[in-house]
Computed example of a mutant assay.
Amino acid sequence: MRRFFFKYFFAGSLLSILYCFMALPVFSQNQILGKQVKATVDSSSIKIGEQFHLTLQASAAPSQQLVWPQIPDSFDHFLVVDKSKMDTLRQTGNNVYKQQITLTNFDSGYWKIPAFSFGMVSGDSAVTSPSLTTDSLFINVNTVPVDTTRPFKPIKQIMGVPFNILAYWPYILGGIIVLAILIWLIFFRKRETVQKAEQIIPQEPPYDQAIKNLHALEDEKLWQNNEVKLYYTKLTDIIRFYIQRQFGINAMEQTSDELLQKIKPITKLNQQKNNLQYILQTADLAKFAKLQPVREDHEASMRKAYEILEWTKPKEEVEQMNKAQASLASSEGITNNES
């Protein structure tokens, strides 16, 4: 009896040691992986069509990459309503990953949520370690109890919602603001148009305006008061502005040499090239070379400016002046005859 006991005790001990050695690789692997995967639900019993949450959680060492299970939009009578973003925490040296999935079911009965498999990739290795699986879960989907002893109730009419102006105040306020902006824009544009219309003053003909400006420049007596540079600046601006309006040349933006080149195609203006060149060169010397032209230069520049205007003025104005002179001469002749 004693030999029999020791025999079976030795055999049992040997089997236990052998089992431990066989389980050692699995145990060691789980320690290396830091394995811990689980699936939980917030309710194991729901009504048909009711939503509940499935939470998947897994932990892994920082040196390992976790392969998350692919969850389809529907599986085993369950429909996926929503998936949260992956949440990562740090616990006891491991990374803990967590995701919440919202599910629902429209088939009454006792249904199983299958186990989910996770994979691990260690370091730079492209080989996935054996899968780590969660436990299966069961959900009881109940129907809504119906009392069949009672008769069917009639379909109710559509219920009207009482009007409450406070519920529409954001829209009313927005409409008032938009209406105020439209009124302001219309009024502002109309006022701006009126102001522009008021500002539009018919300009004098180029010749008349230039003659008037030359007379005004003479009355200022600038060069007589040692304002030579200002005198030539205004004189050249009057001639340039006249050429720009009368002949369409951008004379105000041209240099002296460029302007003399631009007038060549215009025969009437080009015939006054020497006079224009004299004025521009004298002005450049006075403004940039800081030379002081003498009195004869000032008077010659003004005289040549008048000559340019008289030579290039439009035919209509020449005809009007001839008619005015003729009428004046005839009136003087009549006066002499009467006397």
Results as ranks from 00 to 15, higher is better:
1 M>P: 03
1 M>W: 02
3 R>P: 15
4 F>Q: 13
4 F>R: 10
5 F>M: 11
12 G>R: 07
13 S>Q: 07
17 I>N: 05
19 Y>T: 10
20 C>K: 09
21 F>V: 14
29 Q>V: 06
30 N>M: 10
30 N>E: 08
31 Q>A: 10
34 G>I: 03
35 K>I: 11
37 V>G: 01
38 K>W: 12
40 T>I: 12
41 V>N: 08
42 D>F: 05
45 S>E: 15
47 K>W: 06
50 E>W: 00
51 Q>T: 08
53 H>Q: 13
55 T>M: 04
57 Q>C: 03
64 Q>A: 11
67 V>T: 08
68 W>K: 04
68 W>S: 02
69 P>W: 02
69 P>T: 02
70 Q>V: 15
70 Q>E: 15
71 I>A: 00
72 P>L: 00
74 S>K: 01
77 H>G: 00
79 L>N: 09
81 V>T: 14
82 D>S: 07
86 M>C: 02
88 T>E: 08
88 T>M: 07
91 Q>V: 15
91 Q>Y: 13
92 T>L: 12
93 G>S: 05
93 G>P: 02
95 N>G: 04
104 T>W: 00
105 N>R: 03
109 G>I: 01
110 Y>W: 01
111 W>I: 06
114 P>Y: 04
117 S>Q: 08
122 S>L: 09
123 G>E: 05
127 V>N: 02
133 T>Y: 00
134 T>A: 00
140 N>I: 05
141 V>W: 00
147 D>H: 05
148 T>V: 08
162 P>A: 12
170 P>N: 07
173 L>F: 10
173 L>R: 09
174 G>A: 12
181 I>W: 07
181 I>K: 02
184 W>Y: 13
188 F>H: 14
188 F>N: 15
195 Q>V: 11
195 Q>D: 09
196 K>D: 09
197 A>F: 10
198 E>C: 11
201 I>M: 11
202 P>Q: 10
209 Q>F: 10
210 A>W: 01
210 A>H: 04
211 I>H: 05
213 N>K: 15
213 N>Y: 13
215 H>K: 14
219 D>L: 14
220 E>K: 15
220 E>T: 10
220 E>S: 12
226 N>L: 09
230 L>T: 09
231 Y>S: 09
233 T>H: 01
237 D>G: 02
251 A>E: 04
252 M>L: 15
257 D>Y: 03
258 E>D: 11
261 Q>S: 11
263 I>P: 05
266 I>A: 05
268 K>E: 14
272 Q>N: 13
283 A>H: 03
283 A>V: 04
285 L>P: 01
290 K>W: 07
298 H>K: 04
299 E>F: 10
301 S>L: 01
302 M>D: 09
303 R>A: 06
305 A>Q: 05
306 Y>P: 05
306 Y>S: 01
309 L>G: 06
310 E>A: 11
311 W>P: 01
313 K>F: 02
315 K>N: 14
319 E>D: 15
322 N>H: 10
322 N>L: 14
323 K>A: 15
324 A>G: 00
326 A>T: 10
329 A>L: 12
332 E>I: 13
334 I>N: 12
338 E>M: 13
338 E>S: 13
